[in-house]
Write a protein that binds this DNA or RNA. Structure first.
Length: 559
DNA sequence: ATAGCAACTTAGTAAAAATGCA
DNA sequence: TGCATTTTTACTAAGTTGCTAT
């Protein structure tokens, strides 16, 4: 039900001027002085690579759609990638129970390490987490271990935790070369398992790795937090691919749970997860045809809604007065969803998940009615936990004005983006060092201001000296100072705008609405009209995901 | 009519990579 | 040039939807 809200109304129609797009020249490395030719060659290579990529791109949006329900005609892949086997602890790293060292069996040791690795996390202090963990851990123990280890508080994971920290540290301190070796090894895995062939085209898989075992990290007050998420075996995995494709090989000594050939679904592999009993799927990346087409359809639905939304609104206003209670309730629900962008709010099994609600599962205790609140009459106050246990408390007011400097244009774009994020309640924890980083930025602004004052003074002085004189050198100096002042002003403005943007963004996550709610065609058209380069608002991933929109959208696109 | 579930989208957080800065 | 900060990517939990079986 949540659809697209944009600020396209604030857009002023500009004439289209073709902008030659070029990957911003920030070069990758910081090697010694490169010769001009080298830099030039590197840039040429980059452009060539980009063109190559563009040539390779599957322009599926120009093709005819398949008949209803058919997702593909041919699908071939290598199967999912399994996490490495558990490596036993070295002999000098010991677990202690009640002060005495205990050599654990391998399965019990593995689970103990899961806990030890999380000890710096708040999770491990929570009662529910500790209880769930301990119960599941004991199931992995041998009979003797179970008889000995009766109390989590008597367990000492200190050495395991220290070893883990050391490993993390060591990984951080690897030399450049070693890091490169790792990177290449990872790339090899991606090359082998990270792609599939779907109807003659090579497509990137979104999540080709089987989720490794560990302790379940539910959000909020989740009753199952801390439970053991078990290791998945090939015997648990269903493979989906074409009959006439090369069927993926299970790891040596194993077999798949099942191999099926269902082209009415988009997944390549699936398994059932043990904590909640839900299915997990291996699916394609966001830049694939299957995901892109669906996304495009979504925005088309939103666009259609525009033509009937007035009628829907009139209807529910009418229904609010209906004699049927059910109709009135539906009208209120619709009103909430429309006005406040609440999610639908399905029923959930009690005790299985955290207590979160949406529109239809709201309860009386989530709402307070005020005759007056803050000088406003008849106010409804909502206070409840929504998806991902994000607190929803409703208030809002946003306006945006258009300026002509790029930084300001972007601020205005971000504000529009932010309006949607606020409407949809997309929150984030304020970054750890937010206040500090804000202060740093302010300090920079202050110092830049001083610099500007100085530069202005110098310019004045230079002008004075150059006055009346026809000495070319002096004139050049004046020009130089002018430039310096200008540069300073630009930088100052940029920083000030950045500070505003950041402050307004403190606990709002823009990425979700940008990724899922804003019709990319509106953003693309906005860039064209505003003469803002697209990569200022979309990074590589987003440009990839929205390739269809970038390709098909002209400046006159109207949502 | 509806409960249950498979399939898919949406979402925030953690880790990794890129960038900025003294 | 090495460290800190910021941005991007990876990961996976938490929703919604619509079909199927009862």
């Amino acid at each position: 039900m949540q659809t697209v809200f944009t600020k396209c109304a604030a857009m002023t129609p500009f004439s289209l001027s073709k902008v030659i797009k070029e990957e911003g020249g920030h070069s990758v490395s910081t090697k010694k002085k490169k010769t001009k030719e080298e830099i030039e060659a590197a840039r040429a290579l980059k452009i060539k690579k980009k063109e190559e990529e563009e040539k390779q791109r599957w322009r599926w949006w120009e093709e005819e759609k398949y008949e209803d329900g058919i997702k593909w005609k041919f699908l071939e892949h290598k199967g999912p990638y399994f996490p490495p086997e558990y490596q036993p602890l070295p002999d000098d790293v010991k677990f202690y129970y009640n002060g005495k060292p205990v050599k654990l069996s391998l399965p019990a040791e593995e689970v103990a390490l899961f806990f030890a690795q999380m000890m710096d996390h708040e999770y491990t202090t929570k009662e529910v987490f500790r209880n769930n963990f301990f119960r599941d851990w004991r199931k992995e123990m041998t009979l003797e271990e179970r008889q000995l280890i009766m109390d989590l508080n008597k367990c000492d994971f200190g050495e395991l935790n220290a070893m883990h920290k050391q490993k993390v540290e060591a990984r951080k301190n690897l030399s450049k070369e070693e890091k490169l070796v790792n990177k290449e090894a990872n790339q090899k895995i991606v090359d082998e398992y990270g792609y599939c062939v779907l109807d003659h085209h090579r497509e990137r898989i979104g999540n080709f790795k089987i989720e490794p075992p560990g302790l379940f990290r539910g959000r909020g007050d989740h009753p199952k937090q801390g439970m053991l998420k078990k290791r998945i075996q090939p015997e648990d995995v269903i493979i989906n691919c074409s009959k006439d494709s090369r069927i993926p090989e299970p790891p040596a000594g194993h077999r798949w749970k099942e191999v099926r050939h269902d082209n009415t679904v988009t997944w390549l592999a699936s398994w059932t997860e043990n904590v909640q009993g839900s299915c997990k799927y291996v699916m394609l990346n966001a830049n694939s045809k299957l995901k892109g087409e669906k996304d495009w359809e979504k925005y088309e639905v939103a666009r259609k809604l525009k033509t009937c939304v007035d009628a829907i609104r009139a209807q529910y206003q009418e229904d609010l007065k209906s004699k049927q209670m059910g109709t009135r309730q539906r009208a209120v629900a619709l009103y909430f969803i429309d006005k406040l962008a609440l999610r639908a709010g399905n029923e959930k099994e009690e005790g299985e998940t955290a207590d979160t609600v949406g529109c239809c599962s709201l309860r009386v205790e989530h709402i307070t009615l005020h005759d007056t609140l803050d000088e406003q009459k008849c106010v409804v106050e909502f206070d409840f936990l929504g998806k991902d246990c994000i607190l929803i408390v409703i208030l809002r007011n946003v306006t945006a004005a258009m300026k002509d400097n790029v930084a300001e244009k972007l601020l205005s774009y971000n504000r529009a983006n932010r309006a949607v994020a606020i409407l949809c309640n997309h929150q984030r924890a304020p970054p750890k060092a937010f206040e500090q980083s804000m202060a740093n930025l302010q300090a920079k602004i202050d110092s830049r201001k001083e610099q500007l004052d100085l530069a202005k003074k110098e310019l004045k002085q230079a002008k004075k000296e150059a006055k009346g004189s026809s000495d070319n050198k002096l004139l050049i100096v004046v020009e130089k100072k002018k430039k310096a002042v200008q540069r300073c002003e630009e930088q100052l403005l940029k920083m000030e705008v950045q500070a505003t943007d950041r402050e307004e963004n403190k606990q709002i996550a823009l990425s979700t609405s940008k990724l899922n709610y804003l019709d990319p065609r509106i953003s693309v058209a906005w860039c064209k009209n505003m003469e803002v380069q697209l990569d200022k608002i979309y990074n590589k991933t987003l440009r990839d995901k929205f390739a269809w929109a970038i390709d098909m959208t002209e400046h006159d696109f109207v949502f």
